[in-house]
């Protein structure tokens, strides 16, 4: 099973690390932000490559339109702001301007999930996967740590067409290395097992790994899959696994409707695979302010909570 390093880094730094490296070789990349360059870490692009950076101010609809225009004259725009304001506020701009014309625009949705914490429900984006998943041409990446975030950003650059990448605010444990292979649409089996398939991705994956380690010690034989690409989903990898184990459990730090769980369940149904299935997700509710750890605990996403939920499902 994956090692969890002591060291923690916010995965959004993987975004700007990748952009700094990419801009060095391709000056057509433009980073765009909407007054959140410090939070999104794109201030680093502004410092090093001011000609490759645009801050449009607090105007997310315009932000997407400008990115679209840039893509039409050969640039590769990388747009970053809080996920709530990209996927939420600018949804129609992403749908009608970016996805309909299949423009080469990359979207970085920062501060997703519960661990935004103290800012409260307005900023805890838990609906973005559902919104982006229904858009034709859109790719969705959900990296679990700073290195996977770096690799996801590089692969987004190499892909031609719209890509939405999710990042979190908090520093999270390092689970992968930059040298690891990252292929869009190809899930990673982190541990092979016979008894149950556990599927997750994003920053919550470290808690899931811890939970699985606890279960492993108690004799449970778990197959754990990191689905870093939510769309297109690696249906074959998941289907092959559940055919073997006969049981499926999804941990998705997102609203229960429309997230990773929904994506996996509908894909398996279309494959005519019926398995006993369970999920931990946010249960169709807005959360509250609080510290990240307290909120993870309260809503059932702590490693101990994940462990007991899988155990009782088992």
């Amino acid at each position: 099973m994956t090692d969890i390093k002591e060291e923690k880094t916010a995965n959004r730094f993987g975004y700007s690390d990748a952009l700094l490296d990419l801009i060095e070789i391709d000056k057509n990349i433009i980073a765009l932000d909407a007054d959140l360059a410090k939070s999104t870490t794109t201030f680093r692009i502004k410092e090093k490559y001011p000609d490759n950076f645009i801050d449009v101010g607090i105007a997310e609809q315009n932000l997407i339109g400008i990115a679209a225009g840039l893509s039409l004259n050969g640039h590769i725009p990388f747009v970053s702001t809080y996920a709530a304001f990209v996927a939420g506020r600018a949804f129609d701009q992403i749908r009608t301007t970016v996805c309909y014309s299949n423009l080469n625009v990359k979207l970085a949705g920062m501060h997703v999930g519960i661990t935004v914490g103290a800012d409260g429900p307005t900023h805890q984006m838990l609906e973005d996967i559902a919104l982006m998943r229904v858009l034709p041409n859109m790719i969705i990446l959900n990296p679990c740590d700073v290195n996977e975030a770096y690799n996801a950003t590089v692969q987004a650059y190499k892909h031609k067409g719209p890509v939405y990448i999710r990042f979190v605010r908090e520093a999270t444990p390092i689970l992968t290395s930059r040298e690891d292979e990252f292929v869009i649409g190809k899930a990673k089996i982190l541990r092979q097992g016979k008894d149950i398939t556990v599927v997750s991705s994003g920053q919550i994956l470290s808690n899931v790994i811890e939970a699985c380690k606890m279960l492993e010690k108690e004799g449970f034989d778990i197959e754990l899959i990191n689905v870093h690409t939510i769309k297109p989903l690696d249906v074959k990898c998941i289907a092959d696994s559940v055919r073997k184990t006969g049981k499926l459990f999804v941990v998705d730090e997102h609203q229960i409707h429309g997230g990773l769980g929904t994506a996996v369940f509908e894909a398996l149904m279309l494959e005519n695979i019926q398995v006993r299935s369970g999920i931990i997700a946010v249960n169709d509710t807005f959360l509250t302010s609080g510290s990240p750890d307290e909120l993870l605990e309260k809503y059932g996403f702590s490693s101990v909570a994940v462990k007991y939920k899988i155990q009782s499902f088992y």
Binding site: I64, G65, A68, L70, L72, P77, T97
Partner: peptide, 15 residues
């Protein structure tokens, strides 16, 4: 979807 073209124009014009 109305209201989106001028932003696209800005993106083209700025570079």
């Amino acid at each position: 979807s109305l209201g989106q073209g001028l932003s696209i124009g800005c993106g083209l014009a700025v570079y």
